[in-house]
Amino acid sequence: MLKIVGVKKTFNAGTVNEKRALVGIDLTLNEGDFVTVIGGNGAGKSTTLNAIAGVWLVDEGEIIIDGINVTRLPEYKRAKYLGRVFQDPMTGTAASMQIEENLALASRRGLPRTLKSGINAAERERYKEKLKILDLGLEDRLTTKVGLLSGGQRQALTLLMATLKKPKLLLLDEHTAALDPKTAAKVLEATDKIIARDNLTAIMITHNMKDAIAHGNRLIMMHEGRIIYDVSGEEKQKLHVSDLLAKFEQASGDEFANDRMILA
């Protein structure tokens, strides 16, 4: 479903602020894979997702989604294949627009925007049904401006928008990190439910090692712009947080002491 070959990205090349964010990423995801990604700050987790989404173009390498080479496609064209949820709840929705308008925008992802009506009655009914899955009471507030919702509600809505039109690949960039623990658990539960129901291929970045082990069928650890650990199936299920910490220590040496705080 996703094939990344030799992707490299350097920011501010040739300046004092040069940052080699990705130094050669190779990754292949099969259909239905649900991969969790962990790693310290600056490991390149978000950068990898942004490279796939096309926020900027990569310096080297190829990105292929479901057989289509998207390496040179602009972000808005790749959106056709991707569902995305961001860390900041403000990023994923249009605050000045209504809940139903946001959903209508999302349901037209990858389609040309014509002069047909932006939303119709049949859609509204469909959105009501979909919103019920979130169990947040949003199904009765279709015309509420999204800016009035809480962070958790907005994040749940973004998740729904990302999956309203089945994406080839779902990209979750620490989408529960900014939420309180209870809301985070709820959003994570909804995530699991939707991924299982639609058999989605997904990549989820998380700072929480327990979550990384508990969710998905595969786990990737990143460090300094490369993938240093890739485990799946039964081996992943047997993992413990201590295993991951050991793995991380082995890979990063001295820096472990600093990063332990962040990872644990």
Binding site: E75, A79, A94, A95, M97, A104, L105, L111, R113, G118
Partner: peptide, 24 residues
């Protein structure tokens, strides 16, 4: 109120979300 008009409003409201939803 059309699809295009909604896309323009979304562009003004949140450009990065708009691009993520496939809006030019």
């Amino acid at each position: 109120g059309t699809e295009l008009g909604c896309a323009i409003r979304a562009t003004g409201s949140n450009p990065s979300m708009s691009r993520a939803q496939g809006i030019n």
